[in-house]
Structures are given as C-alpha cells and as structure tokens.
Nucleic acid binder design. Structure first.
Lengths: 189, 189
DNA sequence: GGCAGCATGTAACGTGTTACATGATTTC
DNA sequence: GAAATCATGTAACACGTTACATGCTGCC
C-alpha cells in the first residue's frame, strides 16, 4: 500500500477534501503508524489527478486562500480496489504491519469476503514467521566472536530480542484472529 | 541510529570483516527488523573509510576474489559511542523501535550505566505515548463522515486499531522493564 | 508586532532500492 | 550446463524529507 493509495482511500472516504485537510486527517487518525508531509501530498495529488484517478475543483473562499477539493473517480475506485485486493507481502518487518493497518482502514466498505481473505493470508504469513523465530533463525551465537563475560551478555541480549520478536508476532496474530472472529460474529446478528 | 552506525557497530564487534560478510551477519541476526542491500553497504563503507572511522586492508585469496577487510579506528569508536549516547527520539512509530533494538544490540560493551540511562529515557517516552493512545488521541469519530451501518463498522475498526496500539505499547514497555530488571539483578551476582 | 492557522507549491537533498557489470569457483 | 556463493562496485530510479517561497486572516 503506497502513500498514493492511502490518499486515494481517504479521498474516497471524504469526498471534497483538500490536500491540507488530508494531512490533518492523517495526523489525527493514523499519526501513530503513518505520517506524510504536505510537500509529499501535493505532488501525489497532481499525479493522481493526471492519472484520472481523482478530480478536483477550485473553491474560492472568503478570508481564506483558494483551495482544491478532490473527489475520487470510478477509475480511482477501481485502482484502489485492485490495490486492496493485492495479497499481503511476505516480508516480515515492523513496517509491514503498518501496511496491514492502513489497508484494513480502507477496506471496510470492500465487503467481508475481501477482508476475510486478506486476514487469512496475513495470518498464514505471520504464523510462518513466528515458526521461523521460534526455530531460532535469527541466531546470533555464530556471530558473537568474542569470548568471556561479554559473550554471555551479547547472547543474553539476543535471546531477549528473540523473545520480543515472538511476543510481537503473538500479539499480531492474536489481533488478526480477533478481527476475524469479529467478522464471523457479525454474520450471526 | 543510521545505517552507517549500524555498520560501524558490526565492524567493531567483528574486526576484519568484509562488506559481503556484513550483509550475511545482518541477514542472520537482524533480518527481522533491519535489512540493507549490498549496493548500500559498499558506498557506506567508502564513506566511513574516507571519514577515517574505519580502515581496510585488501586480502588476496586463492580461489576467491580479493576482498577488503575492515576494522574500526579509535575515531570510529568515539563516533559510535556518541551516536549510542544520543537520547532516543520522541516520535512514536513502529520504525522507532527498530532503532531501539539496533542500538541495544550495539550497546552491550558500553557499560550498564549507559544502557540503564537509555532504557529509562525510552520508557519515559513509551509511557507518555501509551497515555496519549489511552486518552484517544487517534480518535477517528470526527473523521468518519458517513452515517449508518458503515459508520459503525469504521468506528469499530478504529477502536480495534486503538486496542492494538495499546497492546503494542504495553508489550514494548514490559520488555524494556524486563531488560532493566535484568541489569539490576546482574549487580547482585 | 508576531505567531499560528489556512492553503499551495517548488527545490535541494538524503537514503534507500533494483538493475547492471564483472568474474572466479563450487555444487547439483 | 545452470545455479549458487564469493566479492566489489556503479547507474538509474523511487520515495521521502526539510527548507524555501508566497500570501491572507485571526488572535494575543
């Protein structure tokens, strides 16, 4: 999920939004895991407009500068849906989960089936990563060349980090499972 | 902690290492939260060498291409220590914790006092962020403009994300506290 | 008078990636 | 014979940032 697609999702959710307002919305809602500067937003909006994914109108305001208000086009909606239906990347990094959160934030009105598919694919990936961490892929013992007490301290630190990675993956897996259960219980009501 | 400093820390821990070997070490030990391509490593090594922070010798091997083996200089050690003593950044993002892990990985031989200081500063920051999350800074209700069942679903999703952010911060705080306790118990033995 | 907010944009720079170039040796 | 490993490096590109430029309104 590129920044472009994030903006596209926000414009879809907030028709008639300006670049300046987009930043405020991002700051208020996703500041903990996604941020972007105004200097990035404006060129991205131009690109989106040139590609025909959004349209804009110039609004003349009294007492305030003119502003361009953006709306998503049908072609933009298609493009966004395509992006949201892309399977999640298999690379594990803390950043990857930002992507998960961002996508889920835009996927709400795409339908339960799409969300469920995405959650399942993500769960597969995270469970596989967890197995790899438990199996000790990130094993530092070969790389700690020094000997003596320093060696023990280094190994202890790496063990602690490995523990964090496990707990982190457990948290993510549990969270994704809860979301899945939430979807299932919605079916009953 | 920039990539340069990460490499510097690794060269310090593994004197006589080559660029190619550095990548392998990074892949084996930190691949879950830090990665870098060879095309980035080589220019960085040149920069470090030009700045006098590392030195290298050309090793001629039979059956293998020549390689440059790097060692850290006194000036490099100073620079690394400076970087490690920098107070942690106050911005919360998933990426920020990568920095925490990377730094702790290089700090082992810097002494308990330095580590304790860093852990305390980090804990202060993460606890403050947790308070902000609990207070609902990332409140989406103003930004969810649609009404009806879609609105409820969006709000439910944001609530779920907020929960994740809390749990994530709880995990990080607990982990840092455990490290701190580990340091304290070392004093007894 | 100064600073914050609203509003848009360009220029310079930093930092990373993939693709390309080269070349030997070992393993399947 | 192809592919992987060892080993180094450059070129082109992607994507983001901060700094700079402009200008008006409202508040202290």
């Amino acid at each position: 999920m590129q920044s472009q697609d994030v903006l596209l999702g926000l414009i879809k959710a907030h028709p008639g939004v300006s670049g300046y307002q987009l930043r405020r919305t991002i700051q208020r809602t996703t500041s903990f895991f996604f941020s972007i500067s105004l200097s990035s937003i404006y060129p991205l909006l131009h690109t989106l407009a040139e590609a025909g994914l959004v349209t804009y109108e110039v609004e003349e305001l009294v007492g305030k500068p003119d502003r361009k208000v953006y709306s998503i086009t049908d072609s933009g909606r298609e493009r966004l849906e395509e992006a949201l239906r892309e399977p999640p990347a298999d690379t594990y990094s803390f950043v990857a989960f930002q992507d998960t959160l961002l996508r889920l934030g835009s996927m709400t009105d795409l339908g339960d089936e799409a969300i469920r598919t995405y959650l399942e694919q993500s769960l597969d990936i995270y469970r596989a990563h967890r197995r790899r961490v438990v199996d000790g892929v990130a094993d530092a013992s070969e790389d700690v060349t020094v000997s003596g007490p320093m060696r023990d301290r280094r190994l202890a630190m790496w063990a602690q980090m490995n523990k964090y990675l496990q707990d982190d993956l457990d948290l993510k897996i549990r969270w994704l499972e809860e979301l899945m259960e939430g979807l299932d219980s919605d079916l009953d009501t």
